[in-house]
Simulated scan of single mutants.
Amino acid sequence: MPKVQETTLEINLKSLEHNYNYLTSKTSENTKFLAVVKAFGYGSDPSRIALKLQDLNADYFAVAYVQEGITLRDAGVTKPILVLHPQPTNFKTIIERCLEPSIYSFKVLKAFIAEAEKEKQQQYPIHIKFNTGLNRLGFNENDSKEIIDTLKKTNAVKVKSIFSHMAASEDLNEKEFTLSQIQSFKNIISVFENNLGYSVLKHMCNTSGILNYPEAHFDMVRSGIGLYGFGNSAEQNKNLKPIASLKSVISQIHHINKGESLGYNRGFVAKNLVKTATIPVGHADGIGRQYGKGKGFVTINNQRAYILGNVCMDMIMVDVTTIDCEEGDEVIVFDNTYTAEALASSASTISYEILTAISQRIKRTFID
């Protein structure tokens, strides 16, 4: 790739294909694959990601909110789209745009049935979310029979799947807890299969679940972060390729004398002569203030350059005292070698956060 001339997020769709193929290789031939493309495709581009995965025969897509599903439909995504956290105010839109809601409480279940009946729907697909230990969203295990009784009173909706979410599938120290979640979900499956009157899809594995708990793949698996190149462990990261590279350029070089300060609130004061580079990316672009004052870094000519002072809205300043560089040189914020995970760990956070925070104002380019 030619070197960038401005701050750019490069998205490698070939790497996305590699990750998809690796993850699907871990499942059986009959196991469906749901691709999670919420949060702007984990900070990349949801439409391009989803269309590529649709071409690769992904079976399902998931988004967090209704507007994300509308974006995919407008882009030409025709596969089923599960909305993981819908609100009743959007139920009419869900039906109009052929989206499929996650139903996680009796209030939401009754509200969606009412909207489906109002819109004269027959067997509209819904997904029943169960809480097996994450304690975030979902029905409890002992709600199963009441859910089924409610569903049997209407023809307006039909359950497409029941699902749950693992809380700590990446942490093998929590294996006992994860196995208890799997058993709880199996109990729920048993009640549904014995009382609902028709079969439904079952799924609970996220990326780490796919890799660590093959016995819990059931009928479908879900992957978010794995598709984007991270497997939640150093060992699994070797098998995946980060799809996003955030690059920028050196706008200006300064020489800061001993005792002089740099940036807002004099966040850095030089103890000796320091050479700095100013780079056009800041907290409005997803590089939060937690990366300032020597915690975060970028890479210039294969050397780490640590952020000095406070991160500005549109700029960071980095220490290039020992780096041979010039104005206009390329800067790597993260890529498949100097990863987002490494940068995130410098500020005690995770790759998910920095990836999903990348501003929509940053130019996107694609490799396919």
Rank of each mutant, 00 (worst) to 15 (best):
K3A: 09
K3D: 09
N12T: 07
L16E: 00
H18V: 14
Y22N: 10
E29M: 10
F33I: 02
F33E: 02
A39G: 07
F40K: 15
G41A: 07
Y42S: 04
L53W: 03
L56F: 08
A58Y: 06
Y60T: 08
F61I: 03
A62K: 08
A64F: 15
Y65G: 01
V66N: 04
E68A: 13
T71P: 02
R73M: 07
V77C: 14
K79H: 13
K79C: 04
L84S: 04
H85Q: 13
Q87D: 13
Q87N: 14
F91H: 12
K92D: 12
T93P: 05
I95T: 06
E96C: 11
L99V: 12
L99H: 11
L99T: 11
E100D: 05
E100G: 02
P101W: 09
S102C: 11
S102W: 02
F106Q: 09
F106C: 09
K107D: 14
A111M: 07
E115R: 06
A116F: 04
K120Q: 14
K120E: 15
Q121E: 15
I126A: 03
F130R: 02
T132D: 01
G133V: 02
L134H: 05
L134Q: 12
R136D: 05
L137E: 10
G138H: 08
E141M: 04
K145L: 13
T154Q: 03
V157N: 11
K160S: 15
F163T: 08
H165E: 06
M166H: 14
S169L: 06
E170T: 03
D171H: 11
D171P: 06
L172F: 11
E176C: 08
Q181W: 08
Q181C: 02
K186E: 14
N187Y: 08
S190H: 14
E193M: 07
G197C: 06
Y198W: 10
S199P: 04
L201A: 15
K202A: 13
M204V: 10
C205K: 09
N206Y: 12
T207E: 08
G209D: 13
N212T: 05
N212L: 05
A216K: 03
F218G: 11
G224E: 01
Y228V: 05
G229W: 00
N237D: 13
K238S: 10
P242G: 02
P242K: 02
V249H: 05
I250S: 01
K258I: 09
G259A: 06
G263F: 00
N265G: 01
G267N: 01
G267V: 01
A270V: 00
V274N: 01
A277Q: 02
P280Y: 08
G286A: 05
Q290L: 10
Y291M: 06
Y291N: 09
G296D: 00
G296I: 07
F297W: 15
Q303S: 09
A305K: 03
I307T: 03
I307C: 01
V311Q: 01
M313I: 14
D314G: 05
D324R: 10
E326P: 04
E327I: 10
G328P: 12
D329H: 14
T337Y: 10
Y338K: 04
A344M: 07
I350F: 12
I350T: 14
E353Q: 13
L355P: 03
T356D: 06
I358F: 12
Q360A: 09
R361W: 07
R364G: 04
R364M: 06
F366Y: 14
F366P: 06
I367M: 05
D368P: 04
